[in-house]
């Protein structure tokens, strides 16, 4: 599905991606992990075409994405920090995104699920962080695209919303979609992810399932295994 070859990107002197090779062909949930500044968001934004790589190729279903925009019809993306135009109401924003994508979108169920109805006519600048994140989730998950990219989806969510989110992700997985998630909550990743992609210093340091990670690092649990990957590098 996604094929990335030799991807390089630097911002000024700061080299962020230094030769990423990654191939995701299966369906299921992939967690992209790595310490702060390891290039997770840059990688995701490169796939979306928001960041233009210095060199290397990204292809989606066999087609290079360079200078294209149509392929974004196949992607639902949840940005990390929910920055919305502040003078729109929630309802207007939902309507606008549907209009831009020319799709209907299943927003009603999601709005009900996250109990957003009282906020529909409120301006986005007046919402709390958690509510904004719920709106963000509605905007992302109301469409039915084969690839879903979630950048830190758990930020600011209360326990009930988090539970709903997990169920939603599992439902999408059951439909046979590919889902990329970045998160710093290890328990969340351990519970949800089928495969781990671990980025370190701009390269893919580990790719495989949790079981392989545990045997490779010789650690009893996932959190320690990740910590092991990080400290190993420091030694």
């Amino acid at each position: 599905m996604i094929h990335i070859e030799n991807l390089y990107k630097s911002f000024g002197k700061n080299k962020v991606l230094e030769g990423i090779d990654l191939s995701i062909s299966e369906k299921g949930i992939f967690a992209i992990l790595g310490p702060n500044g390891s290039g997770k968001t840059t990688l995701i934004k490169s796939i979306l075409g928001m960041v233009i790589p210095d060199s290397g190729t990204i292809s989606l279903n066999g087609n290079s994405i360079k200078n294209k925009w149509n392929y974004r019809n196949e992607i639902d993306y949840l940005p990390q920090i929910a920055n919305f135009p502040s003078n729109l109401t929630v309802q207007e924003l939902v309507k606008m995104i549907k209009d831009l994508r020319n799709l209907h979108g299943e927003d009603k169920q999601l709005i009900e699920l996250f109990k957003l109805s009282p906020f529909l006519n409120k301006k986005l600048s007046n919402l709390s962080g958690g509510t904004k994140q719920k709106v963000n989730l509605v905007l992302t998950l109301m469409f039915d695209s084969p690839l879903i990219i979630l950048d830190e989806p758990t930020t600011g969510l209360d326990p009930i919303a988090l539970l709903h989110l997990k169920n939603l992700i599992l439902q999408e997985k059951a439909k046979g979609k590919t889902i990329l998630i970045t998160s710093h909550i290890m328990s969340f990743v351990e519970e949800m992810a089928d495969q781990i992609v671990f980025l370190l210093e701009g390269k893919v340091y580990f790719k495989g399932d949790i079981k392989t990670l545990l045997t490779q690092t010789n650690e009893p649990n996932f959190e320690r295994a990740i910590a092991n990957l990080l400290t190993e590098q420091n030694v």
Partner: peptide
């Protein structure tokens, strides 16, 4: 002022 709006649009299937 419309920076956020722009970022939102960039992730949508719209030509830059």
């Amino acid at each position: 002022d419309s920076k956020e709006f722009t970022e939102l649009l960039l992730a949508q299937p719209v030509k830059r």
